[in-house]
Simulated assay, not measured.
Amino acid sequence: MNKEHHNFLFDDKQTKKIMRKARFWSTIKMIGITLIVTPIVLIAFWYGLRHLSLNSAQKVSDDIHLFNEISAPNVQISNQKYDDNLLGGKIITTTYKVLGDQHRPYIWTPIESDYNLFGTLTQTYISKSIQIEGSESLAETHQLERFNDYTGDREMFFYHPKISYDQYKDKISELKQLENNTLVELAISFDNAYSFDEIKSKLPTEVQVDWWWVDAYTDDTLDFFQQGQNTIPANYPYIYGFQSEQSKPKPRRSSSNEVDTFIRNIELLRESKNFEWETNEVYQALIGENGNLETSDVKIIGAVVTGTPEQLQLLQGKSYIKASTFGVISNQK
């Protein structure tokens, strides 16, 4: 009995020793596997986030390009710099304006845009105008000269043909006061809404058109503008149009015209998370009675033209031009 009891105690101790040894080596094995697998998982996770972040940056970049194509009067993108991290990042977009038929670039305001990991814009920093005070009249306040707070240049503004203003600027008549070695950016507002082909046939062929302003405003918006006789500044977030083919130094290879490209860009942006609200507003303001956006629905109510004072004086006395305001005035040297 005692011998059996002794053997039992021996077996129990031996079993515990074996189990401890097994647990020890199991722990060592788990630690080894963890040390090997964890870096692999972390690296794979890092690369996954990095890939998603880069894709998000590219998506936001494409959306910024598309939105610039349907807005931003005479403002083109020259470059974009990414400052990305695993949770999103920042895109700095450098821009320029085109002046004259030689396509002289004029450096303009950079745009900073923050985005998250999923490719959604979270904040955009846009330059604001410096407005010189000096009028008590509300109507005159909306026509005071504005200056860009980054470059110090004049900011253009437009007059909507469906709004009655007490007064209109006529900067075309002041062109003769400028020296011929300058390049001028001029915003012209038409007296009515025209089809693209109709207004192109009216403008002198010697005048360089860089941007076309599209009538993309709802009746409610125009009623609001009418109450204060609001003009529409060129840096206004909700001003829409498209770059002219004349403003591009290289001819476009696409067979579609500028209006068709404008419509295509709107439809592409409507499918994006970024600028969805803005493009839906444009779409709803433009669509015809059939519920579709077609070329005939796009009406032109203004333009940005550039050139020398002598070239732009060809616009003097044109009855379809209701008003004109200066933008950039630059020495050619």
Score class of each variant (00 low, 15 high):
residue 201 S to V: 05
residue 215 D to A: 08
residue 205 T to C: 09
residue 224 F to W: 07
residue 239 I to K: 01
residue 225 F to R: 05
residue 217 Y to A: 12
residue 226 Q to T: 10
residue 202 K to Y: 12
residue 227 Q to H: 11
residue 234 A to V: 01
residue 212 W to F: 15
residue 207 V to S: 09
residue 222 L to P: 07
residue 233 P to R: 04
residue 232 I to K: 03
residue 202 K to F: 10
residue 235 N to M: 13
residue 203 L to Q: 11
residue 229 Q to Y: 01
residue 222 L to A: 03
residue 232 I to L: 15
residue 212 W to P: 02
residue 225 F to H: 09
residue 204 P to S: 14
residue 203 L to W: 09
residue 201 S to W: 04
residue 215 D to V: 02
residue 226 Q to L: 06
residue 222 L to H: 06
residue 236 Y to C: 13
residue 208 Q to Y: 01
residue 230 N to P: 00
residue 229 Q to N: 10
residue 202 K to D: 07
residue 203 L to Y: 12
residue 212 W to T: 00
residue 226 Q to V: 01
residue 212 W to Q: 01
residue 209 V to G: 02
residue 237 P to V: 07
residue 213 W to P: 05
residue 231 T to V: 13
residue 211 W to C: 03
residue 223 D to A: 13
residue 212 W to R: 02
residue 220 D to F: 08
residue 212 W to V: 04
residue 239 I to T: 07
residue 233 P to W: 11
residue 232 I to R: 04
residue 233 P to T: 11
residue 212 W to H: 04
residue 206 E to W: 00
residue 231 T to G: 03
residue 208 Q to F: 02
residue 202 K to A: 14
residue 208 Q to V: 04
residue 229 Q to E: 12
residue 211 W to Y: 11
residue 221 T to A: 07
residue 206 E to H: 09
residue 209 V to M: 09
residue 230 N to W: 10
residue 202 K to L: 15
residue 240 Y to T: 02
residue 217 Y to M: 06
residue 236 Y to T: 06
residue 216 A to K: 01
residue 217 Y to T: 02
residue 236 Y to S: 15
residue 211 W to R: 01
residue 207 V to N: 08
residue 225 F to C: 00
residue 210 D to A: 13
residue 210 D to F: 05
residue 225 F to Y: 15
residue 236 Y to V: 09
residue 219 D to L: 14
residue 231 T to N: 06
residue 201 S to G: 12
residue 227 Q to K: 15
residue 225 F to V: 02
residue 207 V to R: 01
residue 235 N to F: 12
